[in-house]
Amino acid sequence: MDNGTLQNEIRRRVQASSGLSPEERILAGIRQSELAIRVVKDGLRDQYPDADEATIASLLLERIRLMKRIQNGRIAKR
């Protein structure tokens, strides 16, 4: 799946979650996270076509850490 298709799938899943029970929303959230990770990994593979899986995993971890820093306000806003 290309990134555009994956992003459309994410949007579809978010819209579909509006009528779910709390338990179903938790499961949907987990699935959504898995899909988002897949999108990021696919993007990293596009950006670094010669990278092996260990490098992709390391880059993914860096992106997750950066995202957490941004969410916690520890990165200066421009």
Rank of each mutant, 00 (worst) to 15 (best):
R78P: 15
G4K: 14
Q32F: 03
L59K: 10
A76F: 13
E34W: 01
A36H: 07
N72R: 08
L6T: 08
R63Y: 04
I26R: 11
R13S: 05
V40S: 01
A54Q: 12
R45T: 08
R78K: 14
A36E: 03
Q47A: 12
A28K: 00
V14A: 03
E53P: 00
G73H: 04
I75P: 01
V14H: 01
V39N: 02
I56H: 09
A16I: 07
M1E: 15
Q32P: 00
A16L: 09
P49Q: 09
E34R: 08
L66P: 00
I10Y: 01
G4E: 14
D2Y: 01
I26D: 12
R65M: 06
M1P: 08
V40R: 01
I56D: 07
A76T: 12
R13K: 09
L44D: 05
G19S: 15
T55W: 15
S58M: 11
K41M: 06
I75L: 04
L66A: 07
E24N: 11
L20G: 06
S21P: 04
I30Y: 06
E62Y: 03
R69G: 07
E53H: 11
T55G: 14
L20I: 01
A57L: 11
G29W: 08
A76M: 11
D2S: 02
Q32A: 05
S33L: 05
D52Y: 14
L27G: 09
I10L: 04
N8E: 13
P49W: 03
P22N: 04
V40C: 04
Q71F: 15
A28F: 00
R38C: 11
K77E: 06
G73A: 08
L59Q: 08
A54L: 07
Q71W: 15
L61V: 13
D2C: 05
L44I: 03
N72P: 02
Q7V: 08
G29T: 05
L35I: 02
I70M: 01
L27M: 09
K77Q: 08
P49F: 05
A57C: 10
